[in-house]
Design a protein around this nucleic acid. Structure first.
Lengths: 225, 225
DNA sequence: CTAGAATTATGATTTCGGTCATATTTCATT
DNA sequence: AATGAAATATGACCGAAATCATAATTCTAG
């Protein structure tokens, strides 16, 4: 089993602010786990007694609405932490986490990490910064949901994934999402998402290779009205 | 000028976790201010060099969308802190804060409070908890925006204001919002908000006294489909 | 390799909510 | 008190997007 103090993944999240000693201690009680594509890591209402550090793979955070649709609120990728919010408030999970890939996770029990949160102020300030960033993104999503068209939201989603998670060698988005996932991010019907993507294709803004999407005209996508 | 260490308002926010000494120090450098209804406390892009503690009154946090509409993201009331997010990330404000009432605010300069954030872990953990709570609320709003009708969102907004900010002696919501504010919370056109409120009246769910709103049938409002 | 399932795709129709137009009421200011 | 401005209210119409229907394509499991 890998050691936290040597793990490069921590560079990407708040764990980097822990001391060598703290990391060694955490390393001793963490558990590694593999989850398969489609597996649910936790669901709404679950009591999370720890946080996950994503070593590899991607997952979605979503919430089932009363109309039966699953709204995706955030995409969590390699390097991110998972479940911090519930850890901090002590509430059960507000969202469901579902693997979009095969994933490799490290689970750190609450008892270990809460001490560090209370004693290592650099660490807690880092967590605070991440949370503040998530809150800003969430606020921006609210504004987009309320004020922009499906067409604009979908264009922005494609750009967001491109800018934040990068592309494969062939130029396609490295995060592979189904049309349903796109619909659930944008908050629209699957048919509408597909229709708009087809339209983007016709307009030469994107190309699709199977379900993979490649941006052809980033400036054009940004200008979508 | 009032003293922070004696101020009862701090009971309602993270400042309660500061020590007597820290509060005395803050008290020495804070500035009190009065803002009038409609005044903008800060706007998107402003560099905030401190946080505000709301001693009295109410304000809205909103963001101007590209379509010219102002989406309200959060209502901030007496007892709340204002501007923490920007303080923590060091970014400029992402939202605009506008007074809905005459307000009384205390401004605490960044230089003072950041030290406490880094040194008093109980305080920073409290701020973290508040931020985590805000994030949960924001996630829930995203889901509602994406998946619910204007009718449902407006019903939930009325219930939210009722439950979180209370009522006047006559039973009307104590937070007085214009129809435009309601529209900007729900993310709809003013006319649509007015239409739905009229409908709620016809159905006996609410009564209006001038622009004030009174819930007549809370259970009915909760059941709105 | 093939059958059935899931996903992607497209068309037809309906509906919710936006926009525009226009009263009516309330509010602010002289 | 009077006048103009702002907020509230309601109707008519239109358009974006949901729903329903049905292919076509891709995946998956036996």
């Amino acid at each position: 089993m890998g050691k936290c103090e040597q793990c490069i993944i921590k560079q990407f999240n708040a764990l980097k602010s822990l001391s060598k000693e703290e990391l060694v201690r955490i390393s001793g009680c963490k558990t590694s786990m593999i989850v398969k594509k489609g597996d649910v890591i936790f669901e709404e209402g679950d009591a999370l007694n720890g946080v996950y550090c994503v070593k590899d793979g991607i997952c979605k955070l979503s919430k089932l609405s009363s109309n039966g649709k699953d709204q995706i609120v955030k995409i969590v990728v390699k390097g991110d932490l998972l479940g911090q919010r519930s850890l901090i408030t002590g509430e059960t999970a507000n969202l469901q986490a579902t693997a979009l890939n095969d994933m490799e996770l490290c689970f750190i029990p609450k008892s270990e990490i809460v001490n560090d949160l209370l004693n290592n102020s650099k660490f807690s300030f880092d967590v605070l910064k991440e949370m503040a960033h998530d809150l800003k993104e969430a606020d921006d999503i609210i504004v987009n949901m309320a004020q922009k068209t499906v067409r604009q939201r979908l264009a922005e989603t494609i750009i967001y994934i491109h800018d934040n998670f990068g592309t494969n060698p062939d130029g396609t988005l490295s995060v592979l999402l189904s049309r349903e996932d796109f619909a659930n991010i944008v908050g629209t019907a699957v048919e509408s998402a597909i229709r708009v993507l087809s339209q983007f294709k016709k307009e030469g803004l994107i190309t699709t290779i199977g379900k993979r999407i490649k941006i052809n005209n980033l400036e054009g996508l940004k200008r979508v009205e």
